[in-house]
């Protein structure tokens, strides 16, 4: 987990200080210097339009991390709200869960692709599409926690002394859903980073002018046999980022849920 945290911290620093660390404007083209292999002048080489790959990869970290964190935050918040309501209000439960079942019937990557096909390519839409694909799973998790909790004696006791429902939800149920939710959020962050890269790679994600890792890989795809580094460099960064987040997730899981840690 420490390794993961250190890696992620380094990547966040890359993303935050991209303008300072970059050696060139990531969008600046110079056709004379195209397809230069990695070397002294261009650390990671240049692409087919002569853009500096090192700077593009640094800026790509911004896109990936922003999408990862935003999706993790939005989908857990939405899932938490829907899950709490659905776990406590019988009447809406059936309706909400059928909607979630409907969404879950479509594989997440495919759902995100379909949603992106309906809208314009932009970072907001990418975040929204991936969030919608992730929400049903969070909702199910929260709902299952709520359903077990509300049968617990301390909840019954709170009912008995006349605590209003909203207060029970906020004071007694909500805090207990947090630990599994944090673990879930890290895994969602990791998968969102992958899905964003997949969407951009397929041409259904970020607008082409944004240097996201998926876009850079997609541009390098046709040149793979001549200039493999255009694909390989962002791929390494992408994998390291996801690995870092996954390691943190595993660490959090072991720390927050000792019972599960022994089994996994």
């Amino acid at each position: 987990m420490l390794v993961g945290a250190a890696l992620l911290a380094a990547l966040i620093a890359c993303a935050l200080f991209a303008p300072l660390l970059a050696t060139a404007d990531p969008a600046a083209m110079s056709p004379i210097k195209r397809l230069r292999p990695p070397g002294d002048e261009f650390w990671f080489g240049t692409d087919s339009l002569g853009r500096d790959l090192y700077s593009r990869v640094l800026y790509g970290a911004r896109v990936s991390l922003m999408v990862g964190f935003a999706v993790a935050f939005l989908s857990t918040t939405a899932g938490l709200a829907i899950g709490l309501v659905s776990g406590f209000a019988r009447r809406v439960d059936a309706v909400l869960m059928r909607i979630m079942d409907g969404l879950m019937a479509i594989p997440p990557v495919l759902l995100a692709i379909a949603l992106m096909a309906l809208t314009r390519a932009s970072i907001g839409n990418v975040i929204l599409a991936i969030t919608i694909a992730e929400v049903p799973r969070v909702t199910r998790l929260v709902r299952s926690v709520v359903l077990t909790l509300r049968e617990q004696p301390f909840v019954e006791a709170a009912h008995a002394v006349g605590t209003p429902v909203w207060r029970i939800l906020l004071r007694h149920i909500l805090p207990n859903t947090v630990p599994p939710l944090i673990v879930q959020a890290t895994y969602i962050c990791a998968s969102a980073i992958i899905v964003e890269a997949i969407l951009s790679f397929l041409g259904a994600g970020m607008p082409p002018n944004v240097p996201s890792w998926g876009n850079v890989i997609a541009e390098g795809r046709t040149l793979f046999q001549v200039a493999a580094y255009i694909v390989i460099v962002p791929s390494i960064f992408l994998s390291l980022t996801v690995l870092a987040v996954n390691l943190i997730g595993d660490g959090l899981r072991d720390a927050l849920d000792p019972r599960l840690a022994r089994r996994m």
Binding site: A190, A197, F201, I217, F224, A228, S235, L238, S239
Partner: peptide
Amino acid sequence: SFPVFVIGY
């Protein structure tokens, strides 16, 4: 942690 296309390439 490794996306499909990374392994593929």
